[in-house]
Amino acid sequence: MTDIAIVDYGMGNLHSVSKALEHVAPNASVVITSDPAVVRKAARVVFPGQGAMPNCIRELDVRGLRSAVMEAAANKPFLGICIGLQMLFEMSEEGNVSGLGIMSGKVTRFPALTMKDDSGRKLKVPHMGWNQVHQATEHPMWADIANDTRFYFVHSYFVEAANLEAITAYSYYSFPFVCAVAKDNIFAVQFHPEKSQAAGLTLLNNFVHWEPN
């Protein structure tokens, strides 16, 4: 049986996620898969994503993965990363596409033209680099990670969660935005733990050991 399935719907590069998980769980079986049956049988599911959300949703459906992902999000430890966070929401401004609707709220683009830092300098989009993650709630996934630790981000869109109770962390880029949500067995982050050095590996290690109630 597969311990951890990384859902591959043909968008982008999943090797970094896989290598980081193998590093924290050397004895686990970690597979990159586009087979819904493998996703269904896995003990834990990682739902990553890169690129444009309309393409991601389309490719997910082309491979028949939508229902397997929906089931995993309903009943086993589930980690969404980047577009894998955004796709959980109801809709995205990116191509005005519908998401999976597992979380309520929408995905919005950073308004580059109006964004300035504290010194009045214009801010770039994509939001790329290391930003502080401010933990809004306690969660087993934050174990051994200090509040305001920096993680690596690269994205042009962010989620506006309608259910405030699901928000578990914020970051600040001209304004505060939601960078992590948690609901039951779902934990999903805008940043890339697989590229966030020690802090990222700690978060992935927490995921490998996480037993949601």
Binding site: H15, S16, K19, E22, Y152, S196, G200
Partner: peptide
């Protein structure tokens, strides 16, 4: 890429999409 978990950029001699794919598959971000 199996030892260092920060973003890795690779350049030099990239001529086609297949070159991009090979580098990403090797672990470049």
């Amino acid at each position: 890429a199996t030892q260092v978990f920060i973003p890795l950029t690779v350049g030099g001699g990239v001529r086609q999409v297949a070159d991009v794919r090979r580098l990403l598959n090797a672990g470049a971000d």
